[in-house]
């Protein structure tokens, strides 16, 4: 009754009412099942066989089973991607600030501008002092 490829409905448990295919016969009581249900070992008592047999190899992969069921117009939820592939840790605020500062060239520019301004402001004084000293020398010469 429960040969490989037999279409079944699960009767018991949280997958009750969902369709599945027998992939492997494990022993007198248990079979391996996949499809709309989770891929799992299942007691034959918890299965209600339907009159269809799908051509599948022993231990067929989940993708193959889903494809075969789609041909029978039985929709299956495809496997969701693992949620915890890469744990995204929240970055610390300080690090974010540093990054922002690095990304911003404005502040550096302003510093440079300030420095240039300072130089500009310092230079005329120097020139003035130089002039004064020159004047003094002239006077002394006179």
């Amino acid at each position: 009754m429960f040969e490989i490829g037999r279409l079944c409905v699960k009767i018991a448990g949280r997958d009750a009412g969902k369709k599945c295919v027998v992939i492997d016969v494990l022993d007198n009581n248990f079979v391996l099942v996949d499809g709309q249900t989770r891929r799992r070992k299942c007691n034959m008592r918890h299965l209600e066989p339907l009159d269809k047999i799908i051509s599948l190899t022993k231990n067929a992969s989940n993708d193959e089973v889903i494809r075969a069921l789609k041909e029978e117009s039985i929709g299956c939820e495809e496997k969701k991607e693992a949620k915890h592939k890469q744990s995204q840790r929240p970055t610390k605020k300080k690090a974010v600030k540093k990054k922002l500062e690095e990304a911003k060239p404005k502040k550096v520019k302003t510093k440079e501008a300030k420095e240039t301004k300072k130089e500009n402001t310092e230079n005329p004084e120097k020139t003035e002092t130089k002039k004064k000293s020159i004047n003094k020398e002239h006077k002394s010469v006179e």
Binding site: V9, I11, A12, G13
Partner: peptide
């Protein structure tokens, strides 16, 4: 399971069958 908290397990099996 389907009908959980409404039908007993025996009745759900009979119904789903």
């Amino acid at each position: 399971r389907p009908y959980g908290g409404v039908l007993c397990s025996k009745c759900t099996r009979i119904k789903i069958k």
